[in-house]
Amino acid sequence: MNRPNRLAAKLLAPMLLAVTALIPATSAAQEPGKVIVSIYRVAPGKQLEFLRWQAARDAVATETGIGATQWYVHTDGDSWDYVGISPVTTDAQDDKMDALSKSRNLTTGFKASLEFRTMIASHTDTYARGPTTAAALVEAAK
């Protein structure tokens, strides 16, 4: 790994911890949920197209009861543009979102994947569990 990539990796972990700390905490009775943390670097000239594409899918997720992705916008530092935090969905939820997406003339499946890639320079998806607190993690470690 070259020096800029090592530096970016060192900076990214604390940034992700800071971002997840901003997510509203769940009630004590609710087990923290599984989420996908996505980091996007948008292709040059595709910023607004990317945001519109994501907003249309957020509207579908909200209407199906899943809820919109929580978005964080880069302001300074590393080379990412957006971080999105979304719940992990079930097959049934995915089917419901696909049906609603198709009714709105939005692409789904492989075609949507290809369309998405026209707007992206790079992206990563990481599964995580949270939000939680450090104290709750210490308790879970016992």
Rank of each mutant, 00 (worst) to 15 (best):
V35L: 13
R117L: 14
V35Y: 12
G65C: 08
P87C: 02
A55H: 10
F116K: 05
T69F: 15
L106K: 06
R117Y: 04
R41V: 03
G109P: 09
Q54M: 14
I36D: 08
Y82E: 05
I36L: 13
F50D: 09
E115W: 02
M97E: 00
A61D: 00
Q70V: 15
D58Q: 04
A121E: 14
L106S: 01
L51V: 11
Y72N: 05
Q30L: 12
Q93K: 07
K96M: 08
A56D: 07
R41W: 09
E115M: 02
R41P: 00
I120P: 01
A43G: 06
I66S: 04
E115F: 02
G109Q: 01
S103L: 02
A112D: 05
I39P: 02
A59S: 11
W71S: 07
Y82C: 10
F50L: 10
D76T: 15
W53M: 14
R52Y: 09
D91W: 11
K102W: 02
L114G: 09
D81M: 02
Y72D: 08
A55S: 11
L100E: 01
D58K: 01
S113G: 13
S101I: 04
S113V: 10
V35W: 10
S79W: 10
L114T: 08
P87T: 03
D94K: 08
T69R: 12
G84F: 03
G67A: 09
Y72K: 10
K34W: 07
L48W: 11
A92E: 14
T90N: 07
S103N: 07
G77Y: 14
D58H: 10
T90R: 04
L114Y: 06
D95V: 03
S101A: 13
Y82S: 08
V42A: 03
L51A: 12
K46H: 10
M97W: 00
A92P: 08
A59C: 08
Q93E: 06
A59Q: 12
I85P: 00
A55D: 11
V88R: 05
K96W: 03
A92V: 06
D94P: 01
R57E: 04
V60G: 02
G65E: 06
Y72T: 09
F116G: 03
Q47M: 13
A56R: 06
L100C: 00
G84K: 02
D81S: 09
S86A: 15
N105W: 06
G45R: 08
V42F: 07
W80C: 05
R104K: 13
M119K: 08
D98A: 07
